[in-house]
């Protein structure tokens, strides 16, 4: 039972890592804590849901759509709204993204009602059985996708010219400017990419859990916890943090009670902030 719980947790943690990586990217480059981040997950999930329900497109195949949709949404939000507060004191961006959260979550509620929805594919029951463990294929696939996504993001940031420009802007905006980098463009790209990868996570989640318009906020909190665990602004850390949180949540649900998950998240967050604010890897941006 323990191993099963751990495996389930790892598979779950992979997905956590994906949207947390987006959150970490946005914070690392722009210093913006995106309170609406969970709503981006929600939008990605619903994109897949509607494509599945109306277009019979498999959630895995809908990934490019949700990535593109969320990229556009993210780019737009940044260019139109967040760009105006990026240079202002950070508190402005928190409240601003909070306002954006209210708009997105409640607009979604208005459009799609509060009903819980889920996607049931033909293959969602089939699983791998080995040594008494049950591993659904779908979950294995989502985990694989998740690792690919985080790895892809890391490679993008470190091996491409744009990725380099994004990193440079994060480290010294003025000097990056003098190399010809347009900060506005970089910020919008960063937000767009962060949103896109988060949208993909949403798609993966839609095949996993029930989804509903108000789900966003708790995902934002989870993202924050993952990122504090792994180190704020450090992408590989998001993977580590995600896996750890996933396993801890799984163990709690198995041995104690699933109802206390947000209490657990907060508790972990709390402990990390006291003892290891730079994350387990020690590479987080703290002050």
């Amino acid at each position: 039972m323990l191993i099963q719980a751990i495996i389930t947790g790892l598979l779950l943690g992979g997905i956590y890592a994906v949207y947390s990586a987006g959150f970490s990217l946005i914070f690392g480059v722009m210093g913006v804590v995106n309170i609406a981040h969970g709503d981006l997950v929600m939008l990605g999930a619903f994109t897949s849901y509607w494509l599945f329900t109306l277009g019979h497109i498999d959630p895995f195949l809908s990934i490019p759509f949700s990535a593109l949709t969320l990229f556009i949404v993210g780019y737009g939000i940044q260019r139109l709204i967040i760009n105006r507060v990026v240079e202002a004191p950070p508190i402005m961006s928190y409240i601003c993204t909070f306002g954006i959260h209210l708009i997105i979550a409640n607009l979604a509620l208005r459009l799609w009602t509060a009903d819980y929805r889920s996607i049931t594919t033909s293959y969602c029951g089939s699983h791998l059985e080995c040594a008494g463990l049950v591993i659904p294929y779908a979950r294995l696939a989502t985990f694989g996708m998740a690792v690919v996504m985080v790895g892809g993001l890391y490679l993008f940031l470190n091996r491409t010219d744009i990725g380099r420009a994004i990193r440079a802007t994060a480290q010294d905006r003025e000097m990056a400017r003098l190399m010809g980098v347009r900060a506005n463009h970089v910020y919008a790209m960063t937000f767009g990419i962060g949103a896109a990868i988060t949208g993909v996570a949403g798609s993966l989640i839609s095949s996993y859990f029930v989804i509903y318009p108000q789900m966003g906020l708790s995902y934002t909190v989870t993202a924050f916890c993952v990122v504090v665990l792994g180190g704020m602004g450090y992408i590989p850390g998001a993977l580590l943090g995600g896996l750890i949180l996933g396993v801890l949540e799984s163990l709690t649900a198995t041995y104690w009670n699933a109802g206390m998950s947000s209490a657990l998240t907060f508790f972990i967050l709390f402990l990390m902030l006291i003892f290891m604010p730079a994350g387990i890897t020690g590479k987080g941006i703290v002050e």
């Binding site: 010219d161 380099r164 420009a165 990193r167 440079a168 990056a176 003098l178 190399m179 980098v181």
Partner: peptide
């Protein structure tokens, strides 16, 4: 421009810094 105190991109490698210079 080469500013006072160099102001290299601290977290980037030497190579990345140089490549960044060739962004234009």
């Amino acid at each position: 421009f080469i500013p006072e105190g160099a102001r290299v991109f601290p977290e980037m490698s030497v190579l990345d810094n140089l490549l960044m210079g060739a962004y234009v």
